[in-house]
């Protein structure tokens, strides 16, 4: 039996550690292409985090039909899913769960696929927990509406959403605590 690497426990452990680093250090770009054997980063993250306990929304049809049974996640609406996968090139046309004061962890984790993490015309200046002073992040292929919508979603800490942006091989996290200033504008 030849099982794709991302479904194997040792790869998932490594992807998870990259996620820990990514969420601990917002704006820090994590390269996972090597350990996943070139599998798409968003898929590798889903393989690492999903199981039958989780609800997953796929409003933009990112997930291949064959992957659903492997992920085991329950398909859910964007308004109620704990995890959402989205195409960042499109405007976010949904309202994710923000959690509650008592249980902010119910605020969704949104996996956003974009063209490029680390280079691009959109330049963000980040600050907040996990960032030593300030950090700059360049992105390509993120629809401009995302940042405005995110600002609404994370306006009432501890409620909010946690974003994980990815391209083919790289990850970068923008948890709800990260303060973002747009310092260079994409066209």
């Amino acid at each position: 039996m030849n099982v794709e690497r991302i479904w194997q426990a040792d790869v998932q452990q490594r992807v998870f550690r990259e996620l820990v680093e990514a969420f601990s250090r917002p704006g820090d770009i994590r390269e996972i292409g090597d350990c996943t054997n070139g599998a798409d980063a968003q898929r590798a993250v889903l393989a690492t985090l999903m199981d039958g306990e989780m609800t997953l929304a796929d409003p933009h049809g990112q997930i291949a039909a064959a992957d659903w049974p492997l992920l085991q996640a329950k398909p859910g609406a964007t308004e109620s899913a704990r995890y959402i996968v989205a195409d960042g090139r499109r405007a976010p046309d949904f309202q994710p769960l923000l959690g509650s004061l008592e249980s902010p962890e119910f605020g969704a984790t949104v996996l956003v696929e974009i063209d490029c993490v680390g280079e691009g015309a959109l330049t963000l200046e980040l600050a907040g927990p996990g960032v030593d002073g300030k950090r700059t992040l360049c992105l390509a292929g993120l629809h401009p509406d995302w940042l405005a919508r995110r600002a609404d979603w994370v306006g009432g800490f501890p409620l909010g959403v946690d974003l994980l942006l990815s391209d083919a091989r790289r990850l970068v996290a923008l948890p709800r605590t990260t303060r973002i200033r747009i310092s260079g504008e994409a066209l």
Binding site: V20, F23, L49, M50, D51, E53, E105, T109, P175, T177
Partner: peptide
């Protein structure tokens, strides 16, 4: 088992995203 780890791992990521919660 891998299910138990996933449960803990998801909680760890949320814990990092919501510092101190």
């Amino acid at each position: 088992d891998e299910y138990a780890k996933k449960e803990v791992r998801r909680a760890i990521l949320k814990a990092i995203a919501i510092p101190g919660y």
